[in-house]
C-alpha cells in the first residue's frame, strides 16, 4: 500500500487497494465487499472513524472505529487454588510488532476477602481508559469500605460493572474494542468470566479470547476435563488441576499460539489469583523448534 503523504485522500484502484501484507490494523468487522483478504478503505489510509452514521447531514455523529494498537488473545483457567490468566507482552500496530514490553494483566481489588485480576486483548488505548475507570471505581469503593461494613468488591461485582460498561458502550454504537477475561477468588470461590466489545458475557472454568478461542480453548478444555474425570473415577483426589499442572497447560497453550498466531510473541506472563492475592509472574518464554520449517516451501531454501 502507498503510504506516501501525497497519496493520502486519493481514491485507489482495486489493484492499488490490495494489501498483500495486511499492513493496516486488523478489524473484526471488515465490509463484506472487501472480504477475501482485501483490507483497506477508499482513502488508502486508516479511516479516522467519526463518519456520519445517518445520511442527509443530520449532524448525528457515529463513533464507529477500528482498533489500532492491539493485544492478541488472553487465556484463563480455574485450578484448585484459584484462577490463572495468561497474556503475552506484545501490543501490535497492524502487523508491526510495535510495543514489545506491555503488561496486559492488571491486578485489581485484593483484600482480605477477595482478589481479582483482568487480562485484556484488543485496543490498547481503550484498555488504558478502562483500567483507569476500573481503578477509580475500586479506589472509591475502597475508601468507603473503611466505614461501617461497606461491602467490598469481589470479582463478580467487578465483572458486572465491566459487563454493564461494555454493553452500554456498544449500545451507544461507540464500543470499547476489547475482549477481556476477569479472574478472581472470593471467600474461597473461584470466578472466571469473559466480556467483549459487544457486551457479550459468559463464564466457564476454561476461557480464551480471539485466536485463543480456536487454538487454546480445546487444549484447556481437554486438560480440565481429563483432570475432572480422574477425580470422578477416584483415580486422584479432587477434580481440579494443581498450580503446577495449570501453569504447564497454559505454557503449552502459549507455545501453540506463538507458533500459529502471527500477532503473538514468545514473551508472556501468567497471573495466579488465589485467596492470598494476585501474583503476576515475570515475563517468560518457551523453547521453540523451527527445524521442521526448513522443509516447507516458502520458508526454506526451496524454490517452487
Amino acid at each position: 500500500m502507498n503510504h506516501h503523504p501525497g497519496a493520502w485522500g486519493q481514491t485507489l484502484t482495486p489493484h492499488q487497494r490490495f494489501d498483500a501484507y495486511s499492513s493496516s490494523a486488523p478489524s473484526r468487522y471488515q465490509p463484506s465487499s472487501a472480504g477475501s483478504g482485501v483490507v483497506g478503505n477508499d482513502h488508502g489510509m486508516y479511516d479516522a472513524g467519526n463518519e456520519a452514521v445517518m445520511a442527509g447531514g443530520t449532524g448525528v455523529v457515529g463513533h464507529t472505529q477500528q482498533p489500532l494498537v492491539t493485544g492478541t488473545s488472553v487465556l484463563g483457567l480455574v485450578f484448585d487454588g484459584g484462577v490463572m490468566l495468561a497474556a503475552d507482552n506484545l501490543a501490535s500496530y497492524g502487523s508491526l510488532a510495535r510495543f514489545r514490553d506491555i503488561q496486559r494483566l492488571i491486578p485489581l481489588e485484593s483484600s482480605k476477602h477477595s482478589s481479582s485480576c483482568l487480562a485484556v486483548g484488543g485496543d490498547m488505548s481503550d484498555f488504558q481508559y478502562l483500567q483507569k475507570q476500573l481503578e477509580t471505581m475500586i479506589t472509591n469503593e475502597r475508601t468507603q469500605a473503611l466505614g461501617d461494613d461497606h461491602p467490598s468488591l469481589g470479582p463478580r461485582q467487578i465483572y458486572e460493572y465491566l459487563s454493564n460498561l461494555m454493553y452500554a458502550r456498544r449500545s451507544k454504537m461507540d464500543p470499547l474494542w476489547n475482549a477481556m477475561l476477569l479472574g478472581g477468588v472470593k471467600d474461597g470461590e473461584s470466578f472466571l468470566g469473559y466480556v467483549d466489545l459487544l457486551g457479550t458475557t459468559y463464564t466457564s472454568p476454561t476461557l480464551a479470547s480471539g485466536f485463543g478461542s480456536h487454538m487454546a480453548q480445546p487444549l484447556l478444555r481437554e486438560a480440565y476435563e481429563s483432570r475432572q474425570a480422574q477425580g470422578k473415577s477416584g483415580e486422584r483426589e479432587g477434580e481440579l488441576m494443581s498450580r503446577d499442572e495449570a501453569v504447564a497447560v497454559l505454557e503449552d497453550c502459549m507455545k501453540v499460539l506463538y507458533y500459529r498466531d502471527a500477532r503473538s510473541m514468545n514473551k508472556y506472563q501468567i497471573a495466579t489469583i488465589t485467596a492470598s492475592g494476585v501474583d503476576i509472574s515475570a515475563s517468560k518464554s518457551n523453547e521453540t523448534e523451527w527445524k521442521f520449517a526448513e522443509g516447507l516451501r516458502g520458508y526454506g531454501p526451496q524454490k517452487q
Binding site: 478489524s27 465490509p31 463518519e51 452514521v53 464507529t64 459487544l198
Partner: peptide, 10 residues
Amino acid sequence: MSRFNPYEEN
C-alpha cells in the same frame, strides 16, 4: 467502510 455491527447470533 465497515460499520460496527452491534449484534451477534449466539
